[in-house]
């Protein structure tokens, strides 16, 4: 396989007369942290759903982990992890039960579940919380746990849909440490966000406006191109031209 994890070419999704995703073209390299930035309603989530095999594109092509989104959605699902903005754990299950469940539906063996579960708890420093109900964990811990669970089956790519909503900057920074660790282990990270400080952490960033990708480069190059100091200002300059109302 080449070192391209995700490739999209003129990928388009229309709902009736509304074009949610308008011929986007980009590629994500293996092991890269790829920021998918855009205002609410810009089409980020729709694009991400296509790449996860949840939605079939109207036109254009895309491959994820080398598999075609039209034909091989099932194979794609085996090779990706996913974490949504509503963090995705069961509150009425304990930490270990959540780990067992997710590892179980990805088909891990009992021994693997045991080993990786213990390793995960150690990495997060919550060995003593294995039997705690998720409902009673602080939000920051839940999000870190949700991320760790999303990569427990060691996927090639992990999709994070606004993973850090509602947490303080310190916890967000800690969360990003986990993302870097995952990237170091060779997992490609595809993350949507509207926190521009997070965009700075990414290797490369694409900015979506009205369903199109209006900018696509490393944060440093983007700032140079727009002659500004921060990603925040890059985003403002691009998003000002948006015609769609965020909803």
């Amino acid at each position: 396989m080449s070192n391209i994890a995700i490739q999209a070419d003129k990928l388009t999704k229309r709902f009736d007369d509304f074009t949610a995703v308008d011929a986007i073209t980009f590629d994500v390299r293996q092991g890269e942290i790829f920021g998918f930035v855009g205002a609410n309603g810009a089409g980020k989530t729709t694009a991400m759903r296509i790449l996860c095999g949840l939605s079939i594109p109207t036109s254009g092509t895309a491959t994820v982990a080398g598999f075609d989104v039209y034909k091989d959605a099932e194979k794609i699902k085996k090779n990706i992890g996913y974490m949504s903005q509503k963090f995705s754990l069961y509150e009425d299950l304990t930490v270990m039960e959540n780990i067992t469940f997710y590892a179980g539906i990805y088909g891990l063996s009992n021994q693997e579940i045991k080993d990786r579960g213990a390793e995960l708890l150690t990495r997060l420093g919550i060995e003593h919380e294995a039997k705690t109900f998720v409902a009673s964990l602080p939000l920051g811990w839940k999000q870190k746990l949700a991320f760790s669970v999303a990569v427990i089956h060691r996927p090639k790519i992990v999709f994070l849909d606004e993973p850090t909503g509602g947490v303080d900057p310190v916890t967000r920074r800690q969360f990003w440490d986990l993302i870097y660790e995952a990237a170091d282990r060779g997992i490609t990270v595809f993350v949507t966000t509207h926190y521009m400080d997070e965009a700075e952490y990414c290797n490369r960033v694409s900015v979506m406006v009205d369903g199109r990708i209006d900018a696509f480069d490393t944060p440093a190059n983007l700032k140079k191109k727009f002659s500004v100091e921060s990603m925040n200002e890059v985003f403002y300059q691009l998003a000002r031209g948006a015609k769609r109302k965020a909803d």
């Binding site: 996860c52 095999g53 949840l54 099932e74 699902k77 085996k78 990706i80 996913y82 974490m83 949504s84 903005q85 509503k86 963090f87 995705s88 754990l89 069961y90 509150e91 997710y102 539906i105 990805y106 088909g107 999709f159």
Partner: peptide, 11 residues
């Protein structure tokens, strides 16, 4: 709860 999406994304 949003867990349905996770189930649909899973294999």
């Amino acid at each position: 709860m949003g867990t349905m999406e996770i189930l649909l994304v899973s294999p």
